[in-house]
Amino acid sequence: MSLTDKNDMARTHEGRTVMITGGSSGLGALFARALAAAGARVVVAARRVDRLESLVEEIRSNGGEALAVPLDVRDEASVVAAFDMAEAHFGLVDTVIANAGVNSSGMAVDLPIEDFDAIQSVNCRGVFLTVREGGKRLLASDGMAQRGRIVVLASVGGLNALHGLVAYCASKASAVMLARAFAKEWVKAGISVNALCPGYMLTDINEEWFESASGKRMIERLPRSRLMPADAILPNVLHLTSDAAAYVTGSVIAIDDAQML
């Protein structure tokens, strides 16, 4: 489907420049395609630049505007450089999706402290550095702060303890509170900051496990005995990154198909 087709998705994001961390695959790539289709200039950022370039080529071939920038969210200098490159190409980044995240499962007593630290460095420190840099530039802009839209991709694991995911849950709880704290700090400036907390979704990362016997048993135990598709959260992402979200900030939105009931 061409981005230039008049029957495509409404161009609700015309004039917006969106930075998406963790944009090389999975949800990040999904968001990039949808936002480009909605008219946004899309900056996809991640460590795997080769995959970013392939995504950018796809978006451009469909009539969209996109840019790939290398980014390690754990590194402050890398975060600053990524925003610098985005601004040099498209101008001020007014919309940020802090999507980069990692996980490592296992019981707490068996979890190496190096794994715990690695998860916090991306899911907590990385969110802080990304959101802070985006907000700092919006605050310094000439009257553009009220266009600011920031979405933190957290998880229902940030609201509920999930078995065997102690480090991940701790990091996502931190991400939720970071979103709320940034929202409170910047509320007078008009920047909207919100957290999305998806439940279990089928993605290219977990598809193999959910096809296993253990994965299938877990799906059967869910209230609706199904996983959500990855695009189940797209309507919320599109809303929270649009002009229509001017009155939504500090919200923590769980989208989990009743999985946590």
Rank of each mutant, 00 (worst) to 15 (best):
D110A: 07
L178G: 11
A195I: 03
T17E: 01
G39C: 06
A32S: 05
A10N: 13
R221A: 14
F182E: 00
G215F: 07
V151P: 08
F83E: 05
V176M: 00
R41K: 06
R48G: 06
A167Y: 07
V73S: 07
P198C: 01
P229F: 03
A189H: 04
A175E: 05
D142K: 03
C124S: 15
E207H: 08
V152E: 02
D117C: 06
M9S: 13
K216D: 15
D204E: 03
L3K: 02
R147M: 13
V73C: 05
K184L: 11
N194Y: 11
L261V: 04
C197V: 06
N123S: 12
M1K: 15
I59T: 07
V131I: 09
A45P: 09
A68N: 14
A36G: 05
E185M: 04
N103W: 11
N160K: 12
S105R: 14
D243C: 07
I20D: 10
T249I: 05
R51T: 15
L238Q: 04
D94R: 03
V42H: 04
T4D: 08
T130Q: 00
I97T: 15
G91K: 05
P235E: 04
S61Q: 12
R221E: 14
A230L: 08
P70D: 13
D204C: 01
R221S: 10
R147A: 14
M218Y: 03
G135Q: 09
A118R: 01
D110T: 03
S54H: 08
M144G: 09
R217S: 13
A195N: 02
S61M: 08
G26S: 04
E65I: 13
D115C: 07
A68V: 15
S155H: 04
S105F: 15
V109M: 12
G190W: 06
S251Q: 09
E211M: 10
R217M: 14
Y247K: 10
M218N: 07
V43G: 12
A81P: 07
R137K: 14
E58W: 03
L178T: 14
K136A: 05
A140S: 09
G148D: 09
Q259E: 14
N123T: 10
S225V: 14
K6V: 06
L52V: 05
I255T: 09
M228P: 01
E185D: 08
S174I: 09
K188T: 10
V156L: 09
Y200G: 07
M177N: 14
A154F: 00
R149K: 13
V122M: 14
E208R: 00
S155M: 01
S174E: 09
T95W: 01
P223H: 04
A167W: 10
M260K: 07
A140V: 13
M228I: 01
G199P: 02
L52K: 06
G15Q: 06
C197Q: 02
D115F: 04
Q120L: 15
R47G: 04
D256V: 11
A46I: 05
